[in-house]
Computed example of a mutant assay.
Amino acid sequence: MSELPRLYADHLARDRRRSVHTVRAYEATATRLCGFLTQHWGEAIDRAALAKADTADLRAFLAQRRGEGLTNASAARELSAVRGFLAFATGEGTTPRLKGPRVKKGVPRPISPDEAVALADDVADDASEPWIGARDLAVLLLLYGAGLRVAEALSLTGAVLPLGATLSVTGKRDKTRIVPLLPQVREAVEAYVALSPYGTARDAPIFRGAKGGPLSPRLVRRAVQGARVRLSLPDRTTPHALRHSFATHLLGRGADLRALQELLGHASLSSTQVYTQVDAAHLLDVYRNAHPRA
Score class of each variant (00 low, 15 high):
V117L: 04
V123M: 09
E129Y: 10
P113Q: 03
G145C: 08
G147D: 09
D114E: 15
E92Q: 11
T90E: 06
A87E: 13
A151P: 06
K104P: 11
G84D: 02
D136A: 09
L141V: 04
E152A: 11
G100V: 03
V107D: 04
G106M: 04
E115I: 10
L119Q: 04
D126F: 00
V117P: 02
L148A: 13
P162I: 12
R135A: 12
A138M: 06
V103C: 04
V103T: 07
D122H: 11
L143P: 13
P162W: 02
E92V: 08
L140S: 09
A124L: 07
G91F: 10
P108I: 11
K105Q: 14
P113G: 13
S112H: 07
A118T: 14
A118Y: 07
L86E: 00
G147K: 01
A138I: 11
G100M: 01
A153K: 03
P162T: 14
V103E: 01
A134E: 12
T90P: 00
K105L: 12
E152W: 05
K105G: 15
G93E: 04
A165T: 14
K105I: 14
L142A: 13
R102Q: 15
P108E: 05
S155M: 03
A116S: 14
D136Q: 13
A146L: 08
G133N: 11
L86R: 00
L141P: 05
P162L: 03
L143Q: 06
K105S: 10
A118C: 11
G147F: 03
D136I: 13
E92K: 08
V103I: 00
E92C: 03
K105F: 04
L140N: 09
F85W: 07
R135D: 12
I132S: 00
D125Q: 11
R109G: 07
S128N: 05
D126L: 10
L161V: 00
A120V: 08
L86M: 01
A153P: 02
P130R: 08
L161A: 06
E115M: 13
F85S: 09
D122L: 03
A120Y: 07
A127Y: 02
I111Y: 00
D122C: 12
L163P: 00
L141D: 11
I111C: 01
K104V: 15
T90S: 06
I111K: 02
L161C: 10
A87K: 00
R102N: 11
L143T: 10
R135V: 14
K104M: 12
L161E: 02
A89Q: 00
L137N: 11
G133D: 10
D126C: 03
D122E: 15
T157L: 03
L154I: 09
D126M: 05
L154Q: 08
P96T: 04
P113K: 06
E152I: 13
A118E: 15
S155E: 14
G84T: 09
R83W: 03
R102F: 09
A153I: 09
I132P: 04
V107T: 15
A87H: 05
K104N: 12
I111T: 06
L143S: 12
S128H: 04
F88C: 03
P108C: 08
A89F: 02
S112W: 01
I132R: 06
A146Y: 07
S128D: 13
Y144N: 13
P96D: 04
V107N: 03
L141A: 05
L142V: 14
P113N: 10
E92S: 14
T90L: 01
